[in-house]
Amino acid sequence: MQGVVKVNSALNMRSGPGSNYGVIGTLRNNDKVEIIKEVDGWYEIRFNGKVGYASKSYITIVN
């Protein structure tokens, strides 16, 4: 499943599904990501070869 990031500035990509996990990357508005699965309001995603987590509130699913 594919998604597009929708933010005003930047979205942190984290090592786990929560804001208490470390930041491993930064996503920008309109970045395209691969959604692997949903975990407690977060998406596990793949972006630029990295796998991490981002809040699903800021990612819109596209077909």
Rank of each mutant, 00 (worst) to 15 (best):
Met1Trp: 10
Gln2Gly: 08
Gln2Asn: 08
Gln2Asp: 09
Gln2Ser: 11
Gln2Lys: 11
Gly3Ala: 08
Gly3Pro: 02
Gly3Val: 04
Gly3Arg: 01
Gly3Thr: 03
Gly3Glu: 01
Gly3Trp: 03
Val4Leu: 13
Val4Asp: 03
Val4Cys: 04
Val5Arg: 00
Val5Tyr: 01
Val5Gln: 01
Val5Cys: 04
Val5Trp: 00
Val5Leu: 04
Val5His: 02
Val5Ser: 02
Lys6Phe: 11
Lys6Ile: 12
Val7Asn: 09
Val7Lys: 10
Val7Thr: 13
Val7Ile: 15
Val7Arg: 05
Asn8Gly: 14
Asn8Ala: 07
Asn8Ser: 13
Asn8Pro: 07
Ser9His: 15
Ser9Val: 11
Ser9Thr: 15
Ala10Glu: 14
Ala10Gly: 14
Ala10Thr: 06
Ala10Cys: 05
Ala10Arg: 14
Leu11His: 07
Leu11Tyr: 07
Asn12Pro: 15
Asn12Trp: 13
Asn12Ser: 12
Asn12Ala: 10
Asn12Leu: 14
Asn12Thr: 12
Asn12Tyr: 14
Met13Asp: 00
Met13Leu: 11
Met13Cys: 04
Met13Lys: 00
Met13Pro: 02
Met13Tyr: 12
Met13Ser: 02
Arg14Gly: 02
Arg14Ala: 05
Arg14Val: 10
Arg14Lys: 06
Ser15Asn: 13
Ser15Ile: 08
Ser15Pro: 02
Ser15Gly: 10
Ser15Asp: 15
Ser15Met: 06
Gly16Asp: 02
Gly16Ile: 00
Gly16Asn: 03
Gly16Thr: 01
Gly16Lys: 03
Gly16Arg: 02
Pro17Arg: 02
Pro17Asp: 01
Pro17His: 02
Pro17Asn: 02
Gly18Tyr: 02
Ser19Tyr: 15
Ser19Asp: 13
Ser19Leu: 14
Asn20Cys: 05
Asn20Phe: 14
Asn20Asp: 12
Asn20Met: 14
Asn20Arg: 09
Asn20His: 12
Tyr21Glu: 03
Tyr21Phe: 15
Tyr21Thr: 04
Tyr21Asp: 03
Tyr21Val: 01
Tyr21Met: 03
Gly22Tyr: 09
Gly22His: 12
Gly22Leu: 13
Val23Gly: 04
Val23Trp: 04
Val23Ser: 09
Ile24Glu: 04
Ile24Met: 08
Ile24Gln: 04
Ile24Arg: 03
Gly25Phe: 13
Gly25Arg: 11
Gly25Gln: 11
Gly25Thr: 10
Gly25Met: 14
Gly25Ser: 10
Thr26Asp: 05
Thr26Met: 15
Thr26Tyr: 14
Thr26Phe: 12
Leu27Phe: 03
Leu27Asp: 00
Leu27Ile: 08
Leu27Thr: 02
Leu27Met: 10
Leu27Gln: 01
Leu27Cys: 04
Leu27Lys: 01
Arg28His: 13
Arg28Trp: 13
Arg28Tyr: 15
Arg28Lys: 12
Arg28Glu: 14
Arg28Gln: 15
Asn29Lys: 08
Asn29Phe: 08
Asn29Ser: 13
Asn29Asp: 15
Asn29Tyr: 08
Asn29Thr: 06
Asn29His: 11
Asn30Ser: 11
Asn30Phe: 09
Asp31Tyr: 05
Asp31Val: 06
Asp31Gln: 07
Asp31Asn: 08
Asp31Pro: 01
Lys32Asn: 15
Lys32Arg: 11
Lys32His: 14
Val33Glu: 00
Val33Asp: 00
Val33Tyr: 02
Val33Gly: 01
Val33Thr: 03
Glu34Thr: 10
Glu34Tyr: 11
Glu34His: 10
Glu34Gly: 06
Glu34Lys: 07
Glu34Trp: 11
Ile35Val: 11
Ile35Trp: 03
Ile35Glu: 00
Ile36Gly: 04
Ile36Tyr: 13
Ile36Ala: 06
Lys37Tyr: 07
Lys37Leu: 09
Lys37Pro: 00
Glu38Phe: 06
Glu38Ile: 10
Glu38Ala: 08
Glu38Met: 06
Glu38Ser: 09
Glu38Cys: 04
Glu38Asn: 05
Val39Asn: 06
Val39Arg: 09
Val39Met: 08
Asp40Glu: 15
Asp40Tyr: 07
Asp40Pro: 09
Asp40Trp: 06
Asp40Ile: 08
Asp40Cys: 05
Gly41Ser: 10
Gly41Asn: 12
Gly41Met: 14
Gly41Lys: 07
Gly41Thr: 12
Gly41Ile: 15
Gly41Cys: 05
Trp42Ser: 02
Trp42Gln: 02
Trp42Ile: 01
Trp42Thr: 02
Trp42Asn: 02
Trp42Val: 01
Trp42Lys: 01
Tyr43Trp: 09
Tyr43Ile: 04
Glu44Gly: 07
Glu44Pro: 00
Ile45His: 00
Ile45Met: 08
Ile45Arg: 00
Ile45Lys: 00
Ile45Thr: 03
Ile45Tyr: 00
Ile45Trp: 00
Arg46Leu: 08
Arg46Lys: 15
Arg46Gln: 12
Phe47Thr: 07
Phe47Asp: 03
Phe47Ala: 12
Phe47Glu: 03
Phe47Gln: 05
Phe47Val: 12
Asn48Leu: 10
Asn48Ile: 09
Asn48His: 14
Asn48Val: 09
Asn48Phe: 11
Asn48Thr: 10
Gly49Met: 12
Gly49Tyr: 11
Gly49Thr: 12
Gly49Phe: 13
Lys50Phe: 14
Lys50Ser: 13
Lys50Pro: 02
Lys50Met: 10
Lys50Glu: 09
Val51Ala: 12
Val51Glu: 08
Val51Trp: 10
Val51Ser: 14
Val51Phe: 12
Gly52Lys: 00
Gly52Ile: 01
Gly52Arg: 01
Gly52Glu: 00
Gly52Phe: 02
Gly52Val: 03
Gly52Trp: 01
Tyr53Leu: 01
Tyr53Trp: 13
Ala54His: 01
Ala54Trp: 00
Ala54Gly: 07
Ala54Ile: 08
Ser55Val: 13
Ser55Asn: 13
Ser55Arg: 09
Lys56His: 10
Lys56Ala: 13
Lys56Trp: 05
Lys56Gln: 12
Lys56Tyr: 05
Ser57Leu: 12
Ser57Trp: 08
Ser57Phe: 08
Ser57Pro: 15
Tyr58Ala: 11
Tyr58Cys: 04
Tyr58Leu: 07
Tyr58His: 08
Ile59Lys: 00
Ile59Cys: 03
Ile59His: 00
Ile59Ala: 02
Thr60Gln: 12
Thr60Phe: 13
Thr60Ser: 09
Thr60Gly: 10
Thr60Lys: 12
Ile61Thr: 07
Ile61Val: 11
Val62Gln: 07
Val62Asn: 06
Val62Ser: 12
Val62Leu: 07
Val62Thr: 14
Val62Lys: 08
Val62Tyr: 09
Val62Asp: 14
Val62Glu: 15
Val62Phe: 09
Asn63Glu: 13
Asn63Tyr: 04
Asn63Trp: 03
Asn63Asp: 12
Asn63Ser: 14
Asn63Val: 15
Asn63Gly: 15
